[in-house]
Amino acid sequence: MIKRKDGFSGERALVLPASIIHTMENNPLANALHITDIGYYPRAEHHFRKRETPISQYVFIYCVEGRGWFSVNDERYEIKSNQCFILPANVPHSYGADDTDPWTIYWIHFKGDLAEYYALRLLTPIDIKPTIYSRINGRLNLFEEIYHTLELGYSKENLLYSCSAFHHFLGTICYLQEYRNATVNDISNDLVDAAIHFMKENIGKKLSISEIAEHTGYSVSHFSTIFNHRTGHSPVNYFNLLKIQHACYLIDCTDIKINQVCHKIGIEDCYYFSRLFSKIMGMSPSKYRKHKKG
């Protein structure tokens, strides 16, 4: 079996310097919970990591697509799409992507006085499945905020904001139902609204029209007719509009490279992404980034 620790197309990763971690460990706010490493691996084929010598950080992994596994304390767990888990600190472990359907993961290494209390809730895999009340895309946007804040530099304000946002990020998972209930009154049970919400929650994936229709509980033909009548677009075209809308957000609000943006919206072919973006926005992604707005 091929095993690769890193080097994935579209990947992003930040490893905070030891001096910065030391600074956070000596700050009473940051020491409660702080990030040491953070990243994103799309379709991480042959991803594998084995640590026989334990590390002092907890390792959070959120699988949004594909499959993988992890092993700790002689127990092996299979991981599928829309699941997450935390590996305990100071314990040998290993993990990796499935050979045939490699995972796409968001990952964070973290420490702090409160780290153990968050980790205890996630030592075994938990499901974060898209539903009419889920807020998956909001959670992933929060991850991007944390990443982008740290990417901007290690000022005291940036570090403390990233720590505060990370509390919220873990809270959206540890208190999943409460996170969903917080905006439950803003979500309609209407068929079209439910379908659009489902699309947004799966913006980083490929969805077939049958998968979207199944989520609403209607046949493909009946669902498509209603959706077209209400929106003026086919479900597939509307999903592409949402993908490009999110791509614009990533281009406007982050420093993600153009060839990484396509992976974030579930398009593996960068050339197809550029053609689709240009068709919808009237300019290429790179020109859009330079275009003055506001």
Rank of each mutant, 00 (worst) to 15 (best):
R135F: 07
C163T: 13
A115M: 08
P102N: 02
Y147E: 02
F110Y: 12
L120W: 11
I105F: 09
Y154H: 14
E157Y: 15
I108H: 02
A89P: 02
H167Y: 14
C163G: 03
L170A: 12
P92L: 07
C84H: 02
F169K: 03
L140E: 04
Y106V: 03
L114R: 09
F85E: 00
G138C: 07
A89Y: 04
F110P: 00
S94K: 10
A115F: 07
D98V: 00
V91M: 12
A89H: 07
C163P: 05
F143Y: 11
L120S: 14
I136N: 14
L176D: 07
C84V: 08
A165P: 01
H109T: 10
L176R: 08
C174I: 13
Y175Q: 10
L170T: 06
N181T: 03
H167P: 01
I136M: 13
L120N: 12
Y147P: 03
Y154S: 09
I126P: 09
C163N: 14
A165E: 08
Y106G: 01
S155M: 06
I126C: 09
A115D: 06
E157G: 14
Y147H: 12
E157K: 15
P92I: 02
L176C: 06
L142D: 05
Y161R: 15
A165I: 09
Q177E: 08
F166C: 04
E157V: 15
S164K: 15
K111N: 13
L170R: 08
T149C: 14
P130V: 05
W107E: 00
L152A: 14
F166S: 06
A115W: 04
G153P: 07
Q177M: 07
S162T: 14
L152D: 12
T124H: 11
Y117C: 11
E144K: 05
A89W: 03
L152H: 11
Y133M: 08
I173D: 00
T149E: 13
T149N: 14
L170Q: 07
Y161E: 13
W103I: 01
I173L: 12
T149I: 15
L87D: 01
